[in-house]
């Protein structure tokens, strides 16, 4: 997958049909993991900070819900047009940001589900199927994030 054109806040990405199917499958099934709570401060424990923490988490839950609603639209079949060299996906710059946020939510969510390992090495031989799945999703999301960002202006 690569950026082939970016003009007037619209981006065109060329990819193989298999890549298109993987991207659609990945995003349409968002979210894969439970929401991880955020923290507003590492050092402050005042009542104001606790209130800010609460607001942050409410805001993040709401935002994740809005992304979940958008996910299917972002990879709707009409965005993917067959071309001589595979498939071209058309997406606005704003939608690309939302797609990036979804992909990174998948990536970070899988990392959290794996126990926040310091190294992103493949799971050990005794790992569960679920752990292998999280590891694969983490890498797939990372691949698409990287492809969306490389070559941007």
């Amino acid at each position: 997958m690569k950026l082939v054109k970016e003009a007037n806040a619209v981006c065109l990405y060329q990819m193989d049909p298999q890549e298109a199917a993987m991207l659609q499958g990945l995003v349409k099934n968002f979210p894969f993991t439970a929401m991880q709570e955020g923290e507003i401060s590492r050092t402050e424990a005042t009542p104001e900070a606790l209130e800010r923490d609460k607001l942050l988490n409410e805001s993040l839950v709401e935002y994740r819900e809005s992304l979940t609603t958008l996910a299917a639209q972002l990879v709707a079949p009409e965005r993917f047009k067959p071309q001589a060299k595979g498939v071209v996906m058309t997406i606005s710059a704003e939608e690309r940001e939302q797609l990036l946020q979804i992909l990174n939510d998948i990536r970070v969510g899988c990392w959290n589900a794996l126990g926040q390992p310091a190294s992103l090495e493949p799971p050990a031989s005794g790992a569960t199927d679920q752990e292998h799945k999280y590891f694969a999703l983490l890498n797939l999301a990372g691949y698409f994030e990287h492809s969306l960002l490389v070559g941007e202006s």
């Binding site: 990536r107 990392w111 926040q116 310091a118």
Partner: peptide
């Protein structure tokens, strides 16, 4: 406003 390191966010993504 502090950003902390983690091993999961891609460098190209953080810059973006």
């Amino acid at each position: 406003v502090v950003c902390w390191n983690d091993p999961v966010n891609l460098m190209v993504y953080v810059t973006h």
